[in-house]
Design a protein around this nucleic acid. Structure first.
Lengths: 359, 359
DNA sequence: GCATCCAACGTAAGCGGTTACGTAGGTAAC
DNA sequence: GTTACCTACGTAACCGCTTACGTTGGATGC
C-alpha cells in the first residue's frame, strides 16, 4: 500500500547510485554480485517495485500490448455460455505476451464507447491487436497512425495504391471453405451446393466463397458467379436468406454458410419449411462457436484456431514493435474441419490442416 | 506508427501552452470552446495520443488495474473447452473497469514464473485483483505491501492479531452448500449424507463443510465432527476419496463434494463400484464448471456468479484506490443452486439466492 | 472610476525511472 | 613504469506529461 519508496530511496539505503539500482533491477550488467544482492535486499525490504510509468517514459517502452475485441453478447447470454471464441484469443495473447516478458491490456468495445476507449488504450501500450468487428475501418486506420497495429481475423477493405495497412493474422478462410465443400462433394456425394454469403464487402465472406468455388472447380462442377444468397453474419440473417432461397424454388442438396450464426439460422428456416437436415439438405457453418456443437443436428463446421491466432498476433506485434520499418506481414493459420451430424457425418471430428500461405 | 509528436508539438501548433492541451485532453475546465476545438483538431491531425506513461508518472495514476489468475489447463484441454470460469471473471473485470474509465491488465501465473510476473505487473497498475490459486499467500502479502490488492474467491489463512489482510470478494460458500444440502434432504429425502472435503486449510472447503453441517442441523439430523473424506480439489482426489470411503463399508445416500472436479472423480469411483447415480447415491458438486453440465449424469452443483465476482472485485479495488485508508472490506455474493440429474432432479435449474453478508 | 472577481490561460517544478557518458581503480602487456 | 584496457560504478540530462500557482484582461459592483 505504501507505494512511497522510489529508486532514490533504494539507492541511498544501498549506498549506490540510482543507475546501479536500475541496472540491477533490469537484470543488466555492470555491477558486482555483492552489489546486486544488497540492492535486491533493500528493494525487498522496502517492498519497492519500480514504477512502470517512469520506466515506460524513460525507456519509451511500456512492456504492454493491447488487445481490443468486440463486446458481443452484452445481453441475452445468461443461459448461453458466451462464445468462448474471444476468450480463447485472450488466453492465447496472454500466453504469448507473458512468455516474451510483456503483459496484455484488454478492452471490449461496445459500439458506443469504442473509439474513445481504443485511443485511451493506445496511449498505454506499445502496440495493439485489434480483433475483427471491434472498430470501424476508419478508426483502425487512425489508430495505426499512432501505434503499431496487428489486425486479427479481419482485414481492411481499402487497399489503395500506396496504402500500406497494418499487419494481419487470420485463419485460412479459403482453404477451410474449400476443404468443407470438397468433403460434401467427395464424401457425401453432393452435386448441387449453395453458398450463403455474409455481408457484401466482408473479406472473410469473399474468401470463403472463393474456397467454395475452388472446390466446385476441382470437382468439375459448375461454378456460380455469385453466392446463392446473402445476408448479415447473424442467425436472423441466415434464416432470412434461406427463406428467400427456398421461396425461389431452389432446393440445393447442401448449403455452405458463411459462418455458424448463419448456419444456425439456416437450420431454423429449413425446419420451418419442413426440410430435414441432413436427410434432405446438408448444412455447414464456419467458426465452430460453442452453439454449433449444441445445435440439433450438431453443426458441421470449420474451426479457427483461436488460441493460436491470439498467440500469433501478439508475436507478430512484438516483432513489429522491435522492427518498425520492415515490410507489412500477414500470417494465415490453417483451419480444421469439424464434421458433425448436419452434413450426415456421425464421426466426432475429422481434422486436417487446410493450408498455409504468406500474404 | 510515427509516435513522435508530443504535447509540446501540439501546444506549439495550436498556439497554446502544454497546460492547456493537457486540460483539454483531460476533459477538464479552464479553456474556451474555440481553444478546445483547435487543440483537438491539432491532436487529430498529428494523430497524437497522450503518453500513458508520462500521464501515469505525473498524475501518479496509471488508470490500469491488474488481474492475476492461475494458468489452469495449460495442457490436456485440446478436447475440453477450458473451464470458462476464469474467462467470465476476466470479462466481468473488464466491464467494471471500462465503465469506470480504467483498463484491465491480465496475467496468468504458471507456478514457475508466478512471483516475478506478479511483481512486474504490480509496477504497471494502480491495484491488483488476485484470483484464488494464483499465488502463494506469502507472495500475496508481499504484493499487498506495494499496491492495493483485492482477493477474489480466496482468503488469506493467516489472521494474526494485528494483521489486516487485503479486501476480499467471494461467493457465499456456506450458504450455497447449505442450500444444496437442504435440497437433498427436503426434496429428495436423504438422511445419510457424506461431505467430501478439499485440502485441509482451504477456507473454501471449510466454509462449504460448515454449510453442510448447518443444513443437517436445521433438519435435526446428526452432525458429523469432520468430513467423511478428504482429498485434493481434483478429479483424482475425488475418485480416491470415494474409493476409500466405500472401502470402509460406508454407503451414504448422498455425497456432497467440495467442488465439481471432486464430484466428477466421485462419479468415476462410484461407477467402478457399480453403484448407480443417482439411484443408489446422489452426488453434488460446487462451482458449475463446464464439465459439470456434460457429465453423465449431469452434475447438480452450486454456481458462483463469476462475472459478477469479477465486476465486484474491480469496483471494490477502485474504491480502495480512491480511499486507501478505510477499513478492510469483504463482499460475499450469493450463489445459485443448479439441480441436474445427479441428485435425481429432472428440471434444468432451480435457482435461488443463498445469502449475502458483510465480512 | 476604481476595487473585485473570474475565466482563460502560461510558467515551471516535479513525477521516478533510464542511459549516454565520464571516471576511478585494478590488471595485463611490454 | 607507462600505456592500454576493462570492470564497476556515479553524474546528470532527459522522457512527456500534470498541476500548483501566477498572470492578464475584461466584466461587474457601487
Amino acid at each position: 500500500m505504501a507505494d512511497r519508496s522510489t529508486i532514490y530511496e533504494v539507492a541511498r539505503r544501498s549506498g549506490v547510485s540510482t543507475a546501479t539500482v536500475s541496472r540491477v533491477m533490469a537484470d543488466g550488467t555492470g555491477f558486482s554480485a555483492a552489489t546486486r544482492e544488497r540492492v535486491k535486499a533493500t528493494a525487498a525490504e522496502l517492498s519497492w517495485v519500480p514504477s512502470g510509468s517512469a520506466r515506460g517514459l524513460a525507456a519509451r517502452r511500456t512492456g504492454i500490448v493491447g488487445l481490443i475485441f468486440p463486446d458481443l453478447g452484452q445481453s441475452g447470454d445468461a443461459e448461453e455460455e458466451s462464445p468462448l471464441y474471444v476468450d480463447q484469443v485472450i488466453r492465447g495473447a496472454e500466453r504469448a505476451a507473458t512468455s516474451a516478458g510483456d503483459a496484455v491490456l484488454i478492452a471490449a468495445t461496445s459500439t458506443a464507447s469504442g473509439r474513445d476507449l481504443a485511443f485511451s488504450v493506445a496511449g498505454k501500450v506499445d502496440g495493439l491487436v485489434i480483433l475483427a468487428r471491434s472498430l470501424p475501418d476508419d478508426d483502425i486506420v487512425a489508430l495505426s497512425r499512432s501505434v503499431p497495429v496487428v489486425l486479427l481475423a479481419t482485414n481492411l477493405a481499402r487497399s489503395g495504391p500506396d496504402f500500406v495497412g497494418p499487419d494481419f493474422v487470420g485463419a485460412d478462410n479459403r482453404g477451410g471453405s474449400r476443404a468443407m465443400t470438397a468433403h460434401l462433394i467427395a464424401v457425401h456425394g453432393h452435386t448441387d451446393l449453395a453458398f450463403l454469403a455474409g455481408p457484401a464487402g466482408s473479406p472473410d465472406s469473399e474468401e470463403r466463397f472463393a474456397g467454395f468455388c475452388a472446390a466446385l472447380r476441382d470437382a468439375g462442377l459448375p461454378e456460380p458467379a455469385a453466392p446463392a444468397a446473402t445476408g448479415s453474419f447473424t442467425e436472423a440473417g441466415g434464416e432470412q436468406a434461406v427463406r428467400e432461397l427456398i421461396a425461389t424454388g431452389r432446393r440445393p442438396g447442401a448449403i455452405v454458410c458463411g459462418n455458424d450464426e448463419m448456419a444456425l439460422g439456416a437450420l431454423t428456416a429449413l425446419r420451418a419449411a419442413e426440410l430435414r437436415v441432413p436427410a434432405d439438405v446438408a448444412v455447414t457453418g464456419f467458426d465452430d462457436i460453442a452453439a454449433a456443437r449444441r445445435a440439433r443436428p450438431a453443426l458441421s463446421t470449420v474451426r479457427q484456431p483461436m488460441r493460436e491466432l491470439g498467440e500469433c498476433s501478439v508475436r507478430l506485434l512484438l516483432s513489429r514493435i522491435a522492427a518498425a520499418d520492415t515490410a507489412r506481414k500477414s500470417v494465415v493459420l490453417p483451419t480444421e474441419l469439424v464434421t458433425r451430424r448436419s452434413c450426415s457425418c456421425a464421426s466426432r471430428a475429422v481434422s486436417g490442416p487446410s493450408g498455409r500461405s504468406p500474404g
